[in-house]
Computed example of a mutant assay.
Amino acid sequence: MKNTSTRLLLSCAAIGVAGGLLFIVNSYVGGTVNAVVPMLYGLTLGVYFVPGVIAQALFRRGGVALLVAVLSGLVSAAFQPLGFGAALIAAAIGAVQEIPFLIARYRVWRTWLFLVGAAVSGVILAFGMYRLVGSHDLDVMGAVILLAGSFVSPIVFTLLGLALARALAAAGVGRGLARR
């Protein structure tokens, strides 16, 4: 992150804190869903993609998704059952969000590139959730619902994050920070 201004860092910190608050709420909602209806747990996982997508779409700079995800994870770590593990999971998600843009050398910022990262993450999450929840507790139909929800959730929440970033950009948030 060459030529990183204080303004950019503070903007990332603000998105990270808001994302951390979102993570805290989602950890309890997701935990409740996992306890009551485990097959729908995958639908809650996409929330963790929102802060990174907003930062990437607003600022169009390398490393901002990882930075915002780590900050969100650290903010939420003290209030989640996973503790510091939440920060590690958020960092992993931020790193996966950076990969498609890193491959494109941070020169392409099209919607499809966001969706490619979300789809790859969805595949990873689907396999992880099947091993964590599905193979032990669910029948075949429940496992299919869990896998589909885990795959679709990052894509849906990435689109939501892109819509939020467009709204924030229209309101003037991040003006002068985005690369052309």
Rank of each mutant, 00 (worst) to 15 (best):
V116D: 02
L74G: 06
A95D: 08
A78C: 12
P100C: 05
G94S: 10
A87F: 12
I93T: 07
Q97D: 09
A77F: 11
L132H: 09
A91H: 05
V108Q: 09
G85I: 15
G128V: 05
V70T: 06
H136E: 07
R110K: 15
G94F: 08
G174M: 12
G134P: 09
F151L: 06
G142I: 04
A69S: 15
R180G: 13
S121M: 09
A90T: 03
S72M: 05
F127D: 00
V123A: 11
D139R: 02
V133K: 01
G134C: 03
V96T: 07
S150W: 01
R179K: 12
G83N: 11
G73P: 13
A178Q: 11
L177P: 10
L67K: 03
M129K: 01
P100T: 03
Y106G: 03
L164N: 05
Y130A: 02
I89G: 14
L88C: 12
R107S: 13
L67N: 03
A104M: 12
L88H: 05
V144G: 01
A178G: 13
D137T: 13
V75N: 08
R166D: 15
G172D: 11
A118I: 08
F157P: 02
L88G: 14
G172M: 13
F157V: 00
I124N: 00
